[in-house]
Write a protein that binds this DNA or RNA. Structure first.
Lengths: 248, 248
DNA sequence: GGTCACACGATTGTTCAACAATAAGTAGGT
DNA sequence: ACCTACTTATTGTTGAACAATCGTGTGACC
């Protein structure tokens, strides 16, 4: 205790500082509650989960810096544990590590969006073309679309977005490859990053519920060729639409 | 400079260690030399590189355990740094982390091979179908195949394998997606893991040099449909061949 | 002799404390 | 206003310590 480290005085100073980052601190306290001794899973995994949720929910906006000491104080973990969690988030592409500068929430660009749809085009059409969809798989897809339609009627935008992502994740899962599933998760996480912070947007997802329904319908009839064409148009128009929204 | 980093004294200590398991230690010492103060890159990245090379070269066989203290002694880094490197290798799928047990070099299974070719089928045909191959891209592909042919004539199996992987990596790169490039690297790394330790094998790769040449030729004439069909057959027969070799 | 329980030892997971190295901010001089 | 040097804050890395867990060997008991 001989050395007076900066974070020993940080809480008081942040509380004393009125305008600079008081509101920000409150938000962080809200979402970055100290870890409960829940399960015996690795602490870094839990920490990464907390941060992942906070980021995907748009509570920590793209471009924000994630200071080590602040978060370790909030979460009650050591810096090493947090750095391990950062490494996982960086591998997911949710976060960018700048040498000797720190970790920042990734700011998606227009090129990111274009890459996302290039990947999705290859992955999803690949899954449709190279695999057969057994009845139970089609059932799962239709179940998801039913949930999406309920969410649309209820005006529950987050639930609609979630169902939409689940639908396309399930589509890729048909390729039966954990590595592809992982990549698709990564892509969809980056997708959520694009939506983060612009939730006042008119519901982007409602347009595509019908597209998913039609796709599931084509797959249920095993009209693979038509399903693939429909999927291509679906993805291309979604990309166009999204890019147009980002520009203005 | 002024600081006496651990790897400055590591050589003497590692040489002084007599060795409970002499043969094993010797092999490790050969490949896991203490880090030189090469560039200013992150130490964990360098450590991961050393281990990656040792594993891909087949010097550390699949299934081997990677004990923390032994490797930290050899490399002259702290346990934290090594664990960070382990995390990178685990993200690459080169290594499996067993909770409270340790880190082991991944042992590829037959299912791994099947997954690899499912992924390659989707990725490579996707790249061929969704992108155009400009003359310079075709030139690069042909240049790689020329190197492969030279390696085949010289009987240089590792060079042939390397050229083969470079060819298909280049193919995927045409999709212009860093994330897909990363996945392909991961897939090819796992591929090298399959070959690791069985280098007495008759040259598996020579069969496919001709296949690559033909594929590049079809692409240079922009015969996309034929190129795709050729690629599908190429991958399916490679998978069949490889699985047959693994069984006996 | 076989089997179960328990204790011991080795290894991994996590924290704390310290220091080096780089980046950012600030004061001072011109 | 601009450049420079100093100060400060933050990141990168190490070391030591301890808790938690796994594996193993040993001994009691049947």
């Amino acid at each position: 205790m001989s050395r007076l480290t900066p974070h020993d005085v940080a809480p008081t100073s942040s509380a004393a500082a009125p305008g600079t980052s008081a509101d920000l601190t409150d938000v962080w306290d809200q979402w970055l509650a100290p870890l409960e001794a829940a399960d015996h899973a690795y602490v870094p995994v839990r920490v990464a989960g907390v941060l992942r949720r906070a980021i995907s929910a748009g509570q920590i906006l793209p471009g924000s810096k994630l200071p080590e000491v602040k978060i370790t104080d909030r979460l009650g973990v050591s810096r090493h544990t947090l750095r391990s969690a950062f490494q996982m988030l960086a591998a997911d592409g949710l976060v960018d590590r700048q040498p000797n500068r720190g970790v920042f929430v990734h700011e998606p660009t227009g090129e990111d969006v274009r890459e996302i749809y290039r990947i999705r085009l290859i992955l999803e059409t690949g899954a449709v073309r190279t695999t057969v969809f057994p009845p139970e798989a089609v059932q799962q897809l239709k179940q998801i679309t039913r949930g999406a339609e309920r969410a649309r009627e209820a005006g529950d935008v987050p639930a609609m977005a979630q169902a939409n992502q689940a639908f396309h994740q399930r589509l890729v899962a048909q390729a039966r490859s954990p590595m592809l599933d992982e990549l698709m998760s990564k892509v969809l996480a980056r997708m959520r990053l694009v939506f983060a912070g612009r939730r006042g947007d008119p519901d982007f997802h409602s347009t595509y519920v019908a597209g998913n329904v039609k796709l599931a319908d084509l797959l249920s009839r095993d009209q693979r060729q038509e399903a693939e064409e429909h999927l291509v148009n679906y993805l291309l128009s979604a990309e166009r639409d999204l890019l147009r929204r980002l520009e203005n």
